[in-house]
């Protein structure tokens, strides 16, 4: 059997300009229906680069292919709007691709944001249990990890306090602590090191390296060159929805600087 953790074959993702992040109503639906029928182009003034095709579709990703071996730690680089987050969302199965095919072997734990699924009214302990279930972990496992998670996050004294009373830093630390203790086979992390607290950032980095040694496959998005260089064995560079470079972290970082826009 061929060895891979993540295999991506020709993935593309298309968005309708103006259709993204706008709440639609029956009225706008009917309006668009009539507009389409008379052949008018939607938002013609918003055509701003080559990612937009003639029909007003925006390609956030175009024909992306790569394979990640089990146990690899791969960084994903790219400037704002390069398509990093969309790619992570597709691999996390939050959204589907428009074209292409991807295969994933193993349980994916993705952290597209620290503290996903936290409810402000619930206590730290309750939120840990809830997050564990969201990350597809059973009760006994989460209970066993509870002490380790709280110790890692440093919120021990606030375990019975509702999350809404936490500082944003505490919430982020707890979110990272949970994600890092799910024993992921594949871990997907977005913007991992925008952690303000540098001591905690270092602790996260150590933990990620430990997970990698234990065989987890890790895909990290970061704007920060240092962690990519220190942790990753390989880095991918996205630019305007295209995969433009795939190589050693140092080489990719050089390429990343030259792609500055």
């Amino acid at each position: 059997m061929e060895d891979f953790a993540i295999r991506v074959e020709g993935i593309s993702k298309q968005f309708h300009i103006g259709g993204l992040n706008t709440s639609r109503s029956l009225r706008s639906f009917l309006e668009n229906l009539t507009r389409h029928s008379i052949g008018a182009v939607r938002h013609p003034d918003r055509v701003y680069n080559e990612q937009v095709d003639k029909t007003g579709h925006f390609w956030a990703l175009r024909n992306i292919s790569f394979t990640i071996q089990p146990g690899e730690v791969v960084g994903l680089l790219g400037h704002n709007g390069a398509g990093k987050s969309v790619l992570l969302k597709i691999l996390s199965r939050v959204t589907l691709p428009t074209e292409g095919h991807a295969m994933i072997r193993g349980r994916v734990n993705s952290m597209l944001e620290a503290g996903v699924g936290f409810h402000p009214e619930l206590t730290g302990r309750e939120n840990i249990l809830l997050s564990g279930a969201i990350q597809r972990r059973k009760w006994p496992y989460i209970k066993r990890m509870l002490d380790e998670i709280t110790a890692f996050s440093g919120v021990e004294t606030f375990l019975e306090t509702p999350i809404k009373r936490y500082s944003s830093g505490m919430r982020i630390r707890l979110g990272f602590a949970i994600a890092f203790h799910m024993e992921p086979q594949i871990l997907i992390v977005d913007e991992a090191f925008t952690v303000e607290d540098s001591e905690f950032g270092a602790r996260c980095q150590t933990k990620i390296q430990e997970m990698a040694r234990n065989g987890s496959t890790i895909l990290i998005v970061s704007h920060n060159p240092a962690p990519i260089r220190e942790m990753c064995s390989r880095a991918l560079l996205l630019d305007h929805g295209h995969l433009v470079f795939d190589g050693a972290p140092d080489a990719t970082l050089v390429e990343y600087q030259t792609h500055a826009r």
Binding site: M1, A5, P70, G71, I90, L91, R93, L96, P97, T98, E99, G100, H101, A102, M103, I104, R105, G106, R107, V108, E183, Q185, N214, G215, S216
Partner: peptide
């Protein structure tokens, strides 16, 4: 262990 587990894991397919 984790590699073994992964070999036994079913493959998740992501398609349009």
């Amino acid at each position: 262990d984790i590699k073994d587990q992964m070999q036994r894991q079913a493959i998740t397919h992501i398609r349009p």
